[in-house]
Design a protein around this nucleic acid. Structure first.
Lengths: 211, 211
DNA sequence: GCATCCATGTAACCAGTTACATGATTTG
DNA sequence: CAAATCATGTAACTGGTTACATGGATGC
């Protein structure tokens, strides 16, 4: 399920408490996933029960995790660490979750999963840096094949079609085309990484300008 | 809910039995909605209970409904009518549903509903020919405003961002831009219809080529 | 010290899926 | 007549939502 993927994904790059997990997946750069606490906390509980996730600290976050954290997170982490809770004595509160080893392998398999679900692919991309380069390439190519097959199948209903349906159809087709081009760029990038012979394509460009 | 919208939408353009309702919404030109019988039949039952939909015939479809049907449906309807079931005597089977008056008004309100839900907007477009031109324009402009606001809000996290997240972000931005342009075309079309002074833009073009 | 946000959780409900059961009609 | 496909439905389960309850921390 995609919520699990998102949770494991964000926890894979650093420990967080539930509240922050929600915030983080809510504004994942290109793949925002709105969810609710009513879904999140039970999910965290489930994942903990299955041993995919563990509670790192239940309180007194002295100031930071020992796990090295990628640069992308260092900023927020620093801020978070800065306003340290004065408390220490007393109760259970602010559970900080970390991904467990079983969680990492589960994450990998969720990332490789061939779910035709359009909603989860962006999440797979968002966290695909956790994959081995070859697996990543496979993921992209699988998706590309899937979309290509979709684009290929007969459009049907070219009859005296409604203006708005026609507009929708055009939009749909254009979106598909754009996605294919985008995937081609990603694929090209991966291949370049795997086989470093010719050098080109350093960053994803703003406009889909493949020839 | 979007299944209700889809059902009412397809029934608004002609009577169908459940099985065909599913097929039809499954390949709505630009807004396919995969669903299952386990969702569809209960939904039809609910709609019937609320009086939004009624059973036109429970069997012997002699050959066609008396309701005038738009050209877009005439083809399929003819085929469907052609292979008429030999039966007549006996059981209840093949319930043919038709939209009721209450259903039409419900459809209208569902079409006007301002649901931020990205999934239901395409459905609203698919059936927006049921709206008065002014309402249709309002629907489009509301959506446009919504997307524009989304596009405007700070992208955040331009830090040492992951290649794949960056790619997702670009993709997302491009999709938004394309949708805005697409909506602008629709809006322009509506305005031209409402105020027939200058004439341009007859069909949605294949490429989003607004100036 | 009061309001506001951070933070975690639970309960009731809801819409959907998968899998199953059943039977009629068509076609080879 | 047997197999495939059309056709309708139900039951168990799943994953989510909204609303609620609770309480610590922060800031004015």
């Amino acid at each position: 399920m995609s919520l699990d993927l998102a949770i494991l994904g964000v926890l894979a790059e650093g420990e967080l408490h539930g509240y922050d997990v929600k915030k983080r997946i809510a504004d994942l750069p290109g793949a925002p996933l709105r969810t609710s606490f009513g879904a999140l906390y039970p999910a965290l509980g489930r994942l903990e029960g299955k041993g995919f996730v563990k509670v790192a600290e239940a309180n007194q976050p002295k100031h930071r995790s020992l796990i090295p954290m990628p640069a992308s997170l260092a900023g927020e982490a620093a801020i978070f660490g800065a306003r340290k809770p004065k408390a220490g004595r007393g109760g259970r509160r602010k559970k900080i979750y970390a991904i467990a080893d079983d969680g990492r392998s589960t994450l990998t398999s969720l990332l490789l999963d061939d779910v035709a679900d359009d909603r989860s692919f962006p999440l797979q991309v968002a966290f695909c840096s956790n994959l081995a380069p070859a697996d990543r390439l496979a993921l992209f190519e699988r998706r590309r094949a899937h979309l290509a097959e979709r684009a290929a199948r007969p459009t049907a209903i070219p009859e005296g079609i409604d203006y708005y349906l026609q507009a929708l159809l055009v939009r749909h087709g254009n979106a598909l085309t754009a996605d294919l081009a985008w995937l081609d760029q990603l694929i090209q990038h991966e291949k370049a990484q795997l086989d470093p012979s010719d050098s080109s394509d350093q960053n994803p460009s703003q406009e889909t300008d493949l020839s």
